[in-house]
Amino acid sequence: MIEAFLSAGMALPAMFVAFGLLIGILFGFFGMGGSFLVTPALLVMGYPSRVAVGSGLAFVFGTAVIATLKHRDLGQVDYKLGVSMIVGTTIGIEVGKEMVVYLEELGLAGSVISVIYVGLLGGIGLFVSYEALKGRGGGVDHDAADAEVDPDDIPDIAKKIQSYRLPPMLTLRGGVQVSLWMILAVAFATGLLSGLLGVGGGFIRMPALFYLIGVPVPIAVGTDLFEIVFSGGIGSLLYAQLGAVNLNIVVPLLAGSALGARVGSAATSLVDEEGIKIYFGLMLLGGAVAVAIQEAGKYFQLPWAQEISLLLIVASAVMVAGAVVVSSIRAIQARDNGTATTVAD
């Protein structure tokens, strides 16, 4: 059924534009997580692993370029830190790509990547849902990203890492001093994840910059975006050399995503993120379940598993993006009526 639909001329690009719109709303609103769903969706649709990962990376690259253009005037990028990370990131991506190629030769790439995705999406989904139910944050806090961070707020683990004076030492913005080797280690780990999974790695890099290196949150957010431009660009180039970046996928996805990101970022000034975060956590869990169903379907040869998986991924994205849009419209109407609303119903 899916094959018949997708082979029908413009249906495929139109579907990618619509899916990109959903992803863009999520990325623009939450500041992370959109690209999580692209590679799993492509895997579920039956694309080869390297095409799913390579095209996912190219999509992340394009999205990061647009986001970085928006943030360039905010002064939230530590260029010295970003450039220092490029070497570690590049090596990590190359190792991740070679792992994908090797696993493909063994016929295990799809399964291994899917299992990692199930663990990653499931773990982060549980964490975000738990934090939302507890009434705490989790993920990128838009207000915190724009605020100055007290040096006393630097996590203890970051202070501990900064106490290791393994030369050469780099002085980062805010006077933070850290060993270049620690920066390269963080860059390598996130690069490996990018090369292996086709994601920007921001959901790991941004917290790592804050918790492990002690970079203030606003600078961590901006530098992370700057870094994704390079990790996504380098990763795309490496996969493109394998002929694994499919512009028929990336171009319509990016077109929808860029529009969605504007809607999502506009919604941040209208709707309280905390009211919707539980949906975001559930969406990630939905993505994990979808990939698990897909893998189980392959193993047990269940013909309906692919369609159920794709439906689950799309339905999860529609649910959260819909909550953002509907809440925004209600907020606009309530504001006009002189009442305030901040929580999605």
Binding site: M45, G46, F61, L237, A240, G243, N246, L247, L259
Partner: peptide, 24 residues
């Protein structure tokens, strides 16, 4: 599902994504 990738070399492919992002 078979949607063949456009026959472009690696740099052109990534450049096309970059140009599209700026235009968007």
């Amino acid at each position: 599902i078979s949607v063949s990738a456009l026959p472009l070399d690696a740099l052109t492919t990534v450049g096309a994504v970059l140009v599209e992002a700026i235009i968007l």
